[in-house]
Design a protein around this nucleic acid. Structure first.
Length: 376
RNA sequence: GGGGAGAUACCAGAGUGGCCAAAUGGGGCAGACUGUAAAUCUGUUGGGAAACCUUCGGAGGUUCGAAUCCUCCUCUCCCCA
């Protein structure tokens, strides 16, 4: 994997770049749709390509390991062949599940023992095992095994957890560097900064992560419930320490406004379930603000979902029809909302890139943040 | 014509003397959702800011107190002829 910066903003830390992988290029800043179980929920690959213009998608180690399982993935020839996505894939390590499944897991010295959310069976994840699984899944970008701390999180725990993540990282790196890709193309390991909301821990973690000199770096443990301002302050701090010439990936973020603000702070990559999950729950993100399509006010609104969008569903379907689909529990509603939201997210980062290159990112960003945050 | 069952909030449907402005579902209205245990979850749904007022087919009655008991009326459904 290589990263080349095309243009850097002069009035903020935003930059436009190109990541090159064996499955093609990614123009940054980029938003990566989440496809946890090997599928971006409710979306066809054709829509991902032609309507949403996705350049890279995510998969999840924990979920894919449990189902379909490594035997199937290996026999399929890796996730790219299995789900027929031939552009880049990034897999999360299961570090987020250490957090979100905290009720059914146990931390050990060696790693984490999970109870499967599917059948309750016990499975152990260690840094070595997680590297091995991600080799077999065959993602272009694989994530270090970390612990995503909850919020709030007391200092002692945050420190202990950060140290654990750092130890695990060393083991991840050893395991990764001493193993080979399973399917011929190269894979890249991203380490992850932790440290909860504590500036000194974040600083220490960013320095530790940077010292490993990997090809890119990720920021984890944010957008877990802390105030947005704190998230921005920590992102800014961490970005100021992580090397400038390497991609920075802010994990799990966020709202359209979060993306724009974070791009200004120097973040290049994002992923978030929000456009898909919230879309399935009736929330539409648009350049003019946020719509809850289930609300009565859209019942008689026969205007297109988004008249300024080039995306097929935005022109083809009306708000009133989409409202009806949601109320009638029709599966098509979920599909339309998901396509719309992802297309909007990809449009937003593409537009951000354009303005970075044109040199007017900051004023454009300020205007857009206000616009996309409105409630319609 | 004879016999039986029933009428409860937007709908379905519990409740059969006080703890009932009335369970539960559905529907309606709104809210939440940030590296997906999520087509999920939460709130609310007679009026009123509140004290309180008006409700359980209708009209009377019994009782300190009635959706619940009694009388009559209206209507619905089922079975037999």
């Amino acid at each position: 994997m290589t990263f080349e910066i095309k243009t850097s903003s002069t009035d903020c830390s935003a930059r436009a770049g190109i990541i090159t992988t064996d499955h093609g290029q990614i123009e940054t800043p980029i938003f990566m749709p989440v496809g946890t179980a090997g599928s971006v929920k409710a979306i066809h690959q054709r829509e991902l390509n032609d309507d949403i213009l996705a350049q890279i998608i995510l998969g999840n180690t924990y979920h894919l390991y449990l189902r379909p399982g490594l035997e199937v993935l290996k026999a399929a020839g890796g996730l790219h062949k299995f789900n027929h996505w031939d552009k880049p894939i990034l897999t999360d390590s299961g570090g987020y599940q250490v957090y979100s499944l905290s009720g059914t897991r146990k931390l050990t010295e060696n790693g984490v023992i999970f109870s499967s959310h599917i059948d309750g069976s016990k499975h152990e994840f260690t840094p070595e095992k997680v590297m091995d699984i991600q080799r077999i899944i065959g993602a272009d970008i694989i994530m270090a095994f970390d612990e995503c701390t909850p919020y709030p999180c007391d200092y002692q725990y945050a420190k202990k957890s950060m140290d654990l993540t750092h130890q695990w990282l060393k083991r991840c790196i050893t395991a990764f560097d001493n193993s080979e890709p399973v399917y011929g193309y190269s894979q890249t390991l991203f380490p992850i900064v932790q440290g909860s909301v504590y500036r000194d821990l974040r600083k220490q973690s960013a320095e530790t992560i940077a010292s490993h000199g990997r090809e890119a770096n990720a920021i984890g443990g944010l957008s877990v419930g802390e105030p947005t301002e704190i998230m921005y302050e920590l992102t800014e701090l961490v970005c100021s320490i992580l090397p400038k010439d390497k991609p920075r990936y802010l994990m799990g973020v966020g709202t359209p406004a979060n993306l724009l603000e974070s791009i200004a702070l120097g973040v290049d990559m994002f992923d978030c379930v929000m456009p898909t999950r919230n879309g399935r729950n009736g929330m539409l993100f648009t350049r003019n603000g946020i719509i809850n399509i289930k609300n009565k006010k859209w019942e008689m609104d026969f205007s297109p979902i988004d008249e300024e969008s080039d995306c097929f569903v935005d022109q083809f379907y009306t708000k009133a029809y989409l409202k009806h689909l949601f109320k009638a529990n029709e599966i098509l509603g979920l599909q339309i909302a998901s396509i719309h939201n992802l297309a909007f997210y990809l449009w937003l980062v593409k537009e951000a890139r354009k303005h970075i290159i044109e040199g007017d990112f900051l004023p454009w960003k300020t205007r857009m943040v206000e616009q996309v945050s409105r409630r319609l």
